Computed example of a mutant assay.
Amino acid sequence: MTRTAFAMGSATFLAVIVAGFLSAVWVDRHYAAAGSAMTSASACVSDDGSWNNWIWANVPMLSPKCPKR
Score class of each variant (00 low, 15 high):
10 S>W: 15
58 N>L: 10
1 M>V: 07
34 A>H: 06
20 G>F: 13
56 W>H: 02
31 Y>E: 13
62 L>T: 01
16 V>H: 02
27 V>W: 11
24 A>P: 04
46 S>M: 05
21 F>T: 07
25 V>K: 15
60 P>T: 00
50 S>M: 13
11 A>M: 08
53 N>I: 00
51 W>L: 07
6 F>E: 08
29 R>S: 06
63 S>W: 03
33 A>K: 13
31 Y>D: 10
17 I>M: 15
9 G>M: 15
23 S>W: 03
1 M>I: 04
21 F>D: 03
28 D>K: 15
4 T>Y: 13
30 H>R: 11
10 S>I: 03
53 N>E: 09
58 N>K: 11
55 I>L: 04
64 P>T: 00
66 C>K: 07
13 F>I: 05
52 N>P: 00
45 V>T: 11
12 T>S: 08
30 H>D: 05
9 G>Y: 08
67 P>W: 00
4 T>W: 07
59 V>N: 06
33 A>E: 05
32 A>E: 11
19 A>C: 11
44 C>V: 01
43 A>P: 10
65 K>A: 07
47 D>R: 08
23 S>F: 04
8 M>S: 08
8 M>I: 14
54 W>Q: 02
39 T>N: 11
56 W>Y: 06
22 L>D: 06
21 F>M: 15
34 A>I: 09
64 P>G: 00
43 A>D: 06
38 M>D: 09
20 G>A: 14
13 F>C: 14
39 T>G: 09
53 N>H: 05
11 A>E: 00
16 V>S: 14
49 G>L: 11
